[in-house]
Structures are given as C-alpha cells and as structure tokens.
Write a protein that binds this DNA or RNA. Structure first.
Length: 878
RNA sequence: GGGCGCGUAGCUCAGUUGGUUAGAGCGCCUGCUUCACACGCAGGAGGUCACAGGUUCGAGUCCUGUCGCGCCCACCA
C-alpha cells in the first residue's frame, strides 16, 4: 500500500466533495427528525462562498451528518440566495472559459463583472437556477421562473392586502439615489461622520428680530415651509403667529408651535422641510404644510429649488451656504458629529424622499411572533438573543416592501387607466375590479427580496397547496443562521409562518457568531477583508478550514479566524493521516487484512483503558453536538485522538506488534478503536475520514457505501472501566516521572538509566505487570521494591502512589535541587490553604461532606508529599 | 439616548449549575533527524482571571459600581 508521508487534502477532496453535495439533498420518507438548513453552495460556485457562509454551512453540515449517522432522517431545505449563487455559477463558468483565475481579478473587478454578466446572461442564470432547484421571479423581464414561489408570494400579498395589512401610501422613505430604489429601515446603515451645524438667520416679518435655526443640511432649507418653536419656549413668545422670510427663496413661511422643536437643542428653533425629513413630514401633516420637493430621485436639486435646480445635492449645499454667508445670514457654524444614513449595498448617502410605496403593517404580525418566542414555541440558542429579538419586535415599524429594482418578484397590483383604482390579484386581471375598464397597468415595482425569503419555510414545501411535504415537514426543527439577519429574515419568517401556517416555522434557532479577521473586523465581501475560502481550503484543506472554524465556534462568541489556527488544524489532519499510515503499513507487515472485524477481547490494560476513554469521548461528542457546542466537539475529539490514542495507545501497541503475527487481538482492537475514532470525527472532518475509512475497508460488501452512512458511535456503559482508567493513570504517572527525571538530569535520550521504583500500593503490582511498557516508553531499567525510597539514593520523584529513584550522573543534581525547592514551596502554600479551610468551623459545618472529605484527603497527600520532597532535598549531596 | 456582550498565559480563545494547585492551541525555552508523523516526539517557563466593593464556609464563575473595548437598535434638527 502506497501512502504519502504528508497528508495532501487536495488529492482527495474533490472526489468526495461531489458526493457531499449530492448527498445533501436527499429526501427522507417518514422522517422522525427534521433539520432545516441553508443550501451549501456547491464547490464549483465558490465565488459566492465566504467564511461566514462556510462557518454556517459547516455547522449545518456537522449537525446533518450527525443526525444521519444516528439513523435519523433529515430534510435539508436548500435556501435562499438564489440569484447570488446562480450568478456566481455563470461567472465562474465564464471565467473558466476565458481561462482567467478569479483570484487574480481582485474583489472589485470581480464584483463589477458579476453585475455586467448578470445583465448579459440573465437567461443562463435562470436556467442554472432551475437546475439548482431555486426560484426567482424576474419582475421587470416579465417571465416567471418558479411558478411555486411566485404563486406563494402573490398569494401572501393578496391575503395580506385583503386583510388590510398591506397598504400603499405616501410616506417618507429612505431613497438611494444611486440604486434608484426605496430601502427599508434595515437596509440603511448609519455612519458617524464629522459635519457641521449651520446656524442660519431667518428674518421675522414685521419685526427686527430674526429666528436662528440650526441645521446639518442647509440645502434642504430651499424646501422649508415653516419654522417651528416649542410652545413652551418662552424665549420666542413674540414670534408666535408671525411669519418669517425664507432667505434665498424669498418665500413667506409661518412660524408654527410644535413639540418637534426641543428647547434644549441648538437654538430651540427648527426649520421644517416636510418633503425631506421624516420628523418634518409628520409635523407637516399635523399643521397642513405644503411639501416642496427640492431634491429628486437622482440626488439632484429640482426646479423647485429655483436657481439651484439641477445642481447635485452636495454642490447645492456649498452654494447655499456661500450665498447665505454673502447675505450675512450665517450666525455661526459649529462642528458637529452626526450619523448619516447610507445605502447598505452601495454606501451612497440615503436621501429621505416623499414617495408612494407599498407597506406591510407590522404590529398585528409581530404580536403573535413575540408570544411564540415568549412561550418557547421558538427557542433561541443562545437564549440571550431573545432580548434582541423582543427589543426589535416591540418597537417594530411598518415595512416598506416595494423596490424599484429590475430583479425580484413583481408586485401583483394593477392600476386602472380610467378610474385610477388599484386591483390586487393572484392572476393577471383582465378588467379593473372597480370600473371594469380593461386599461390596466401593473405596478412596475418589485418586492423586497426578504419578502419572499420570509415565506421560505412553507413556500419550499409546496404552499399554498396542501402538500404531503408541508404536512410532514412543517414546522421544521432547526434553523442555523447568523444574527446579522435576525430581523431581516428570522423574525419575518416567524411572523409569516404564524400568519399563514398558524404555527412557527422552526422550533429552534441556533445563532452562530460572526467570522472576524485578525483585526477583529467582521469579514464581509463589501469590506473586502475576507479570507478567501477557495484559497485556504486549497492551501490547508477543507477539513482543516472546517476544524479551525469549529474550534472557535463557542456559542455566543465571534470567531477570530487566523491562518495560524489553520496551520495547527492541518497539523492535526496530518497527525491522523500518519497514524493511519503507521497502522496500515504495519498491518501489511503483519500480514493483516486492512479491515475491521470488530473489537477483540480487551485482554490488556491499554485496551480496557482506550475503550473506556473512547466511550467517554463518544459521550462528550454526542452531547456537545446535541447542544450545538461545536467548539467542544472539535476539542474533545482532538484531545482523544491526538493525546490519548496517538500519544499513549499507539505507542504502547508498537511494543506488541511483530512481523507476520497475523490478526491478533491487539490488531483487532487498534483497528476497531481507530475506525470508531474516524466515525466520531467524520462530521467534523468529512473528507479525511472518508478517505481513510474507505482504505480501511476496501471490501464494501455488507457495509454502508460511505462513512457518512455508518453509525455514529454512541456511549455504551459496558465499555466504561474506572479501574482501567485509574491504573492507566498511574502507569502514565510512572512513565512521566521517569521522563521528568531524565530531563532534569539532562540525560542523553539514547542512554538507558537505572533506577528503582518503590511502592506500598497497587502501583507496585501494576509496575510488575507492565514493566516492559514503562522501561520502553521512558527508556529506563527499573528494579521494583516494596516500601519507600531511602534517603540519598539518587534523584527522586514521588507521588502518593510511588517513589521513583534514578541514578544521577555526577554533577547533574542542581536541577533536581531547584525543582525540589520549588515543589516544596508550592506544597507549603497549598497545605497552608487547606489547613486554614479545615480549621474554619463554619466551613466544616456548612460545606458539603464530599468537599470537606476531599480536602482532608488532599491535605494528607500534600503532607506526605512534602515529607518526601524535604527528605529528598536533604538527601542530595551538598 | 436605549439594549446586548466582552475584558482569563506574549497572541487567539475555552472555562455548562460557585467547590481540589485555572485549561487548550499558537508562540517562546531545553533536548531529540527514535524506521507513522519536524504539519513530529519528550520536557519546561509563563496568569494577583480589567479594577473596587459586596453576597458566601468558599467567587474566574453570582450582585453593585468604575474603567476600557465591541456590537445592535433609535426621527433629536
């Protein structure tokens, strides 16, 4: 058998990757357990894969594999970033045709091309989406891809509309002048920016005085239709009922009394621009003020802005300020920090504009969703996300769902050219429902993508039809996702699920951390600080990348991902690989077939021990996955495989193997433990374990075709063996003590040292039985003697169980002296601590008995140990 | 302004319900090319658990406050 010295993941992953993906979309029948998850982008669509996805998919994948290996059927619902994934597929293919490596392009250029290709290859994209089983309705292009989802979207829209929960209204919306679309509140990101607060004088008509208003956006003054003061603000009593002259526009506008003005802030006087500020808009409604739009959809000043018309809004600001300054109307300018809203997608400064849009009334939908979480029908892991969820749900605002984009589900509303009324309909209407006219035009807008995403848990199962899938799989059991889309998606799925299915969409929501880079920055495509999964999986292997992510994935914490971590994960993969290499090569040498026949009799201590440890490991791993403690899974397996199986078990077994010995019990047990370890590891490191498992069992008859379908090891009380664990522990202590002494005296590793092991306990008998193991692993030759070590016999290390004395080469006792002195110091410290506790009556009376007993026992050990160390120190030659 | 979270070894982080001398990986130091693995083996150094109080027989763990950091939400011009 040829096995490479170093594990080269690239050689094995592509083959299994294909299987991995295919296996994902498998539909069980009569499922008992359901898993609800996002699609894992196929490896050939890596363009859309980033570390955040990878973490999410890894956690999902671990969970799915675990369930499947436990014989529980899973349904994995492929999910939602259809357009993104499909586009990336096209782009990847296009690049491959061109022979361009996407990594040489750079993010920006890549994104640019994605957008270009999106338009150019729209048709191909749609076909690809069909292949992926995803769906999208390309609104502006007027054809429908997936009748299912489109139908569900229209159904929901119509039902909500008929219930009065969807309405069309003129409101202030967040408008992106670059994307030319309205945005929901959530799509606006606030950015702290240094700006100015301009104080502008507005002369009061029929009076000498002027009202000074403070504003951060002077250009909007062109659209002012009032000036507000607080009714309680005594400073401006004389201005009540008067008007002011709006500078630059020479318009007379009223002074209104409104709580909009906060006497504490600025001058206490506010300019009111109902067309360009949400607060002013509300105030304008209260006072029936005209709304003058001075900025248009492209961010340019309108004709209403007089001589500033046509100017860019930022240019206009400079001109307005300059002109006001010329007129001597600038009272002062103070620097001011403000949060400017920007478009999440393109970072353009958002412009609040009055516009007619479609909205969903959220309060009636939010209330049942709040209750569902409160009474535990939906459970968050970790639980503290409930607070965040509630915070948002209790303060929820109506949701602007119409978008002026060219992709998306088109709004099923038609306007009548004759009577102007709206017809909302599931099917394309032939006549206006109000006047019967046939002159109908569909609303050109499309829906927010999150609108259809919110329907995903049931639309993917066939809703609105009453399908078997729907009845079987709704509600699903688990959603794994990031908190960044808690509001965008999770909350809305819960609301829609309750509204249309009458039940929650999922029982549990596991919320993972965000992936951050070494500088603690959130990794995101737009920020450009991503570690490219393509690169790292190629460099370190997908298994190593997965393991690195999992090791950091403690619930409730973010993940800092560094290359160092992947280096060590790769080392672990290599360690497993080489353990296998050792086993397989030795099997050949021994004439053993590389297959597993199940464990043989556990005749030796190390066998009883490793089975007991394996059992504990299985127990911990199962529990950890069940509780979504992925970091613990990884850690527990790492510890067991490396530091128990490799470091001790295999090392001991080396002494047992002889050439051509055939299939001994030793072999059967080693292989059995290794094979079970592979199965335990499989969800965490699928490729490596699959490859090794296949090599281990070349004859597949009677076995699952893949390790992914093999049984996940479950804890078995019959394997637990306290005695073996305790004995092995002492054996390890003896060996470690000997190695310690060797290191202290700087012994040549090749030189076998003589010594004596003294013991009055079972350790002596243990040592007698395992003297070969001790002598080989520590490279010493020991005599065994009952009793305790005599003074001055050599250098010593002792435990409550035994004293080990080695003959020190001359001149190497100084290290021993220092070590003993330090040890004595430490012991004195802990003895003092224990004594203090045991001397305290309240402690004795209140602490539980086992705790007190434990400390008593420990104190006795410490004291015995101290005695030995002191005596050893005194026994050292001066 | 409101809410959430974090501050533990040089670095990145664990530490389930308070209970023996606080852990891991990386890095560092010492010694080893021992025929599975230098992506390795053996050994080692390194922490007043941010600070100050409090509860308790006992606090890294619970409570209060302070300082520092991060995130989310919010219509104060």
């Amino acid at each position: 058998m040829q096995i490479e010295k170093v594990y080269e993941p690239q050689r094995f992953e592509p083959h299994w990757a294909r299987w991995w993906i295919d296996s994902g979309v498998f539909r069980p029948s009569g499922a008992s357990e359901r898993v609800f998850a996002l699609v894992i982008p196929p490896p050939n669509v890596t363009g859309s894969l980033h570390m955040g996805h990878m973490l999410e998919h890894t956690e999902i994948d671990v969970t799915i594999r675990w369930h499947r290996m436990r014989g529980e059927n899973t349904l994995w619902l492929p999910g939602t970033d259809h357009a993104g994934i499909a586009t990336q597929m096209v782009v990847e293919r296009k690049l491959a045709e061109e022979g361009t490596d996407r990594r040489t392009l750079g993010r920006e250029e890549f994104e640019r091309r994605v957008w270009a290709w999106k338009r150019e290859y729209g048709d191909t994209i749609k076909r690809q989406m069909i292949r992926l089983g995803v769906s999208c309705d390309w609104g502006r292009e007027r054809f429908t891809l997936d009748p299912g989802l489109s139908r569900a979207v229209r159904e929901v829209f119509v039902r909500l509309y008929e219930k009065g929960l969807i309405y069309r209204g003129e409101y202030m919306v967040n408008w992106c002048p670059r994307c030319h679309t309205a945005l929901s509140d959530l799509e606006v990101v606030k950015e702290e920016t240094a700006g100015n607060l301009w104080h502008i004088r507005y002369p009061v008509n029929g009076s000498d005085r002027a009202l000074v208003v403070a504003t951060t956006r002077p250009e909007t003054m062109l659209g002012d239709t009032a000036v507000a003061i607080n009714p309680k603000d005594e400073r401006y009593g004389d201005a009540h009922g008067r008007t002011v002259q709006l500078p630059l526009m020479d318009r007379e506008i009223p002074v209104i009394l409104d709580t909009l003005a906060d006497p504490e802030f600025g001058t206490g006087v506010v300019k009111v621009t109902p067309a360009h500020d949400p607060n002013d808009f509300e105030a304008g409604k209260r006072h029936n003020l005209p709304k003058i739009r001075v900025i248009d959809e492209t961010g340019k000043m309108t004709a209403e802005a007089g001589r500033y018309g046509g100017l860019d809004r930022f240019e206009a600001r400079l001109r307005v300020v300059a002109d006001l300054d010329d007129l001597g109307l600038i009272e002062k300018i103070e620097p001011y920090h403000l949060a400017i809203g920007k478009c999440q997608r393109c970072k353009t400064v958002v412009e609040p504009l009055i516009s007619t849009q479609w909205f969903v009334k959220m309060k009636p939908l939010a209330e049942p969703a709040i209750r569902a979480v409160e009474d535990g029908r939906v459970q968050f892991v970790p639980e503290n996300w409930v607070k965040t969820y509630n915070e948002w749900m209790y303060n929820i605002r109506d949701w602007c769902i119409s978008r002026q984009l060219w992709w998306g589900h088109r709004i099923p509303a038609w306007y009548c050219g004759d009577c102007g009324a709206i017809t909302v309909s599931r099917e394309t209407p032939t006549a206006c429902v109000h006047c019967g006219s046939g002159w109908l035009t569909q609303d050109p807008d499309v829906l927010d993508t999150w609108f259809s995403s919110a329907l995903w848990p049931f639309s993917t199962l066939g809703w609105p039809d009453d399908t078997v899938d729907l009845r079987t799989y709704y509600p699903t059991s688990l959603l794994i996702t990031g908190f960044d889309i808690l509001f965008f998606w999770v909350a809305r799925m819960i609301m829609m699920g309750l509204e249309f299915m009458g039940d929650v969409p999922f029982r549990q929501v596991y919320i993972h951390g965000l992936v951050r880079d070494a500088e603690r920055q959130k990794m995101s495509k737009t920020r450009g600080n991503v570690i490219d999964p393509l690169e790292v999986t190629e460099k370190y292997g997908t298994d190593a990348a997965r393991l690195s992510l999992l090791l950091g994935a403690a619930p409730g914490t973010d993940i800092v991902l560094t290359e160092e971590r992947m280096v060590s994960s790769r080392a672990f993969a290599n360690k497993i690989w080489n353990a296998a290499r050792f086993l397989y090569l030795n099997m050949e040498r021994s004439g053993v077939e590389p297959e597993v026949r199940g464990p043989g009799a556990a005749e030796t201590l190390e066998d009883r021990w490793i089975f007991s440890r394996l059992n504990r490991c299985a127990e911990a791993a199962n529990r950890a996955i069940e509780q979504y403690r992925y970091h613990e899974v990884a850690q527990v397996l790492w510890q067991f495989v490396w530091h128990e199986f490799c470091d001790w078990y295999v090392e001991i077994k080396k002494l047992r193997f002889q050439d051509n010995s055939g299939l001994t019990n030793d072999w059967r047990n080693v292989l059995s433990v290794f094979e079970m370890s592979l199965r335990l590891l499989h969800p965490v490191m699928p490729f490596l374990t699959e490859e090794l498992w296949q090599r281990l069992t070349p004859d597949k008859t009677g076995r699952p075709v893949s390790i992914a379908l093999a049984e996940y090891p479950q804890p078995d009380p019959a394997l637990a063996n306290e005695t073996a664990e305790k004995e092995m522990e002492i054996l390890q202590e003896i060996i470690t003590a000997a190695r310690n002494l060797r290191a202290d005296m700087k012994a040549d590793p090749k030189q076998q040292l003589d010594g004596t092991l003294y013991s009055r306990t079972g350790a002596l008998d243990l040592a007698v039985r395992h003297i070969d193991v001790i002598q080989k692993l520590a490279n010493v030759r020991l005599e065994l003697s009952p009793g305790t070590a005599p003074r001055g016999g050599g250098i010593l290390r002792s435990t409550p169980e035994f004293d080990l004395v080695l003959q020190a080469p001359a001149g190497q006792i100084e290290a021993q002296r220092q070590r003993l002195e330090k040890e004595i110091q430490q012991l004195e410290k802990v003895i003092a601590g224990s004594k203090r506790q045991l001397g305290d009556d309240t402690f004795l009376s209140r602490a539980p008995v086992p705790v007190v007993d434990g400390i008593r026992r420990k104190l006795a050990d410490y004291e015995a140990q101290l005695e030995k160390s002191r005596s050893a120190l005194e026994g050292l030659p001066a």
